[in-house]
Design a protein around this nucleic acid. Structure first.
Lengths: 147, 147
DNA sequence: ATTAATGCAAACGGTTTGCACTACT
DNA sequence: AGTAGTGCAAACCGTTTGCATTAAT
């Protein structure tokens, strides 16, 4: 009991809690495992549909809820405000989104810690760096803008 | 021409651009001027309706678009991903939202600069600190959680 | 008189819900 | 058999759009 959830053990963990292991959940897990660590709700739905054409949004979102309970994903919000899910296990990282070129980068743990330090030093705020996507201009676009 | 917009001069600036100064826009401006610097789209609609019961969402959102063109507001996204408008002129600041108690604080310019420095130092990313609301735990809630 | 702006109502996209049905345990 | 999970369709919320009408210039 009280097993740690991971992609391989989700099934058992679910069953251990009286929940069930279904092919739809399998599909969601497959897509999450193949994602690069973050994905929006609707992207997830699309990709699931690619694997299983019968995928329903409601099932996907409901599955995300239980996976969040298990600690396998955490939700946040992307640059445009849409729900975004961070796939665990992974280092707690944040995201940078360039509003000019549209690319997204990760903020590695070290740099995230530095940001957290600044805010903590200010007034003790414990930031959850992974909850939102920071927006701005990447070096390249910033340079272009200055030129 | 090329006038700088401000709450007092919006009317002239609009007219200078061939646009019009209407009572509905007046209402939106009134609400914005009375706001504490940030407000969501739907909040704005509500408050406008309080002043003028006939306020329509479409008009409010369309007005926000032109005000953004004039540089009087900038849009971003709040903790829950909803559109949030920052009212100018004001120092470029960010927001901190405590996911536990729900309160929101401002990140003053100095601290925002410090955060920007960290990211700029990392890879030259020019963050727009005002575009998103950072989420985490305020000191009080963080302490409670630790206890 | 022009044409920008409004109000309405409908459409949108992403997400959530109620409910009868299916299928894991 | 029991009940968690599903699929569907409809509802939701905030926001956007088309279009005929109103009103600022």
């Amino acid at each position: 009991m009280d097993e740690r959830a991971s992609w391989e053990t989700v099934g058992e963990v679910l069953r251990g809690r009286g929940l069930r292991w279904t092919s739809q959940r399998q599909t969601v897990i497959d897509v999450l495992a193949a994602s690069n660590g973050h994905i929006t709700g609707s992207e997830l739905v699309e990709r699931c549909r690619a694997l299983d054409a019968g995928t329903t949004p409601s099932t996907v979102y409901r599955t995300l809820d239980v996976l969040e309970d298990l600690g396998l994903v955490r939700h946040g919000h992307g640059a445009d405000g849409r729900e975004e899910f961070h796939v665990l296990p992974e280092s707690r990282h944040g995201h940078l989104h360039c509003s000019s070129c549209g690319q997204t980068w990760e903020i590695d743990e070290r740099r995230g810690e530095a940001v957290a330090d600044v805010l903590r030093a200010g007034d003790g705020f414990e930031i959850d760096i992974g909850h939102v996507t920071l927006v701005g201009l990447c070096q390249q676009c910033a340079d272009t803008a200055r030129a």
